[in-house]
Design a protein around this nucleic acid. Structure first.
Ligand SMILES: [Mn+2]
Ligand SMILES: [Mn+2]
Ligand SMILES: [Mn+2]
Ligand SMILES: [Mn+2]
Lengths: 218, 218
DNA sequence: CTACATTTTTAGTTTAAACTAAAATTAATT
DNA sequence: AATTAATTTTAGTTTAAACTAAAAATGTAG
């Protein structure tokens, strides 16, 4: 059994590893978790003792196979609960993260087996993020940032990078959600801004918006 | 915001208060929570500082209005989650308590409002226990222990006192569940044992069984 | 290569929640 | 009423997880 704190560290290290493809620095963990580097050092040493990560002083941390599986399982639970909250309880997609942060720590294998089945074995959470399977494997999908598209290209929104309320509500206001078809009508090379078409509407978006929306082309 | 430990203490004191109708002793709390009396003293002093209970040295504890509401809310969450686990996830009634012990501590007003609605605003949990409303009020029902009935009396099972797996599985084996009609065919005054009829079957039960089944006799 | 800056670790504290052992209070028996 | 027993509290420790301040290691610029 692992503590709430340990689970949160593993999850954070997992995410940071994905992003950087390299070992994770103590400072990076501290920043992400809004804690102090000295606290992180304590914890990574503990996790290393437990063989969840490999760690060499001053050299950063990487998850072991065991630790990675553990982390993926926490993320699996988080995302399944988010599906539950949105699909069943009709929460809005910008309201579920904080609650899932708590629910992800509930300990019961059987609960997750049943929840998964009850939700129809979903592959993605409400933000388009893939749900790891029982063994921690994730289906990787061909996804691009909207900002990578050029004029006249089309894509289907399959997820978001940024998941804060402000951004998700911005998307809602413009009727963009998972599955929405987006057509790039114009792109300004100077600042990366775009004119896009969504349904019958067409409007301007900044580079910052385009860099936080994942689309599938083809 | 209250800690998990504080919530568990409040819940325990609430239950003990119900049972004894009087102030709750430090030892009683310690025994119920499987902890040491000295630990309980520490915590009740802390809860008293926070005005959740009233406490005088050596005199035991009673919940304040505020503490009682708090405790009832934790119990509300526990029982709503139990309904979810049984009604939606198809858990068996003897499997849900431990999971609900964890889920009861999830902090989100809105989550409970929605869960309650999703479950159809249930009044009772899978063991027949009443679910407190948002204000901590509980519908008190006229319930008796099966052991209080005499020969030729009939009752409908509306709940259980003991909720351990062994007992619940015993009931299942004999097709007794919430709503089951029970007919007392005979009662032995020497040891309190009974012969009862359930559907077409009739069989012997000990006093211990009869003392842990609640019935309604209309 | 040296000097300064940044990152990381160590050492020592703090807080919550448990514990043991001993002291204090209350209850029960002779 | 005095003694013994049971209950409850106090005092002092322990552990997990945070913190601050200072030391050590690593990285960067001149
Ligand atoms: Mn999330
Ligand atoms: Mn978390
Ligand atoms: Mn229960
Ligand atoms: Mn609990």
């Amino acid at each position: 059994m692992y503590s709430l704190a340990e689970e949160n560290y593993l999850k954070t290290i997992y995410h940071l590893e994905q992003e950087s493809k390299t070992g994770v620095s103590t400072n990076a963990i501290a920043e992400r978790m809004e804690t102090k580097p000295s606290s992180v050092t304590d914890m990574v040493q503990k996790l290393a003792d437990k063989k969840m990560i490999s760690y060499k002083k001053y050299k950063g941390s990487t998850l072991t196979v065991h630790g990675k599986k553990m982390a993926a399982n926490v993320i699996r639970k988080h995302r399944l609960w988010e599906v539950f909250l949105v699909d069943k309880l009709k929460f809005h997609w910008d309201e579920v993260h904080e609650i899932a942060e708590q629910l992800e720590h509930i300990q019961s294998e059987e609960l997750i087996v049943r929840l998964d089945k009850y939700l129809g074995n979903p592959d993605f959470d409400p933000h388009g993020d893939p749900i790891p399977d029982k063994d921690g494997k994730v289906k990787s999908t061909e996804k691009k940032l909207l900002s990578e598209l050029n004029k006249k290209q089309r894509g289907v929104c399959i997820g978001v990078k940024e998941t804060g309320s402000e951004f998700l509500q911005y998307l809602d206001k413009r009727n963009i959600t998972i599955g929405t078809k987006i057509n790039v009508l114009g792109k300004e090379f100077f600042d990366g801004s775009m004119i896009i078409q969504v349904g019958k509407d067409q409007f301007f978006i900044s580079k910052k918006i385009a860099e936080n929306l994942y689309v599938q082309t083809n």
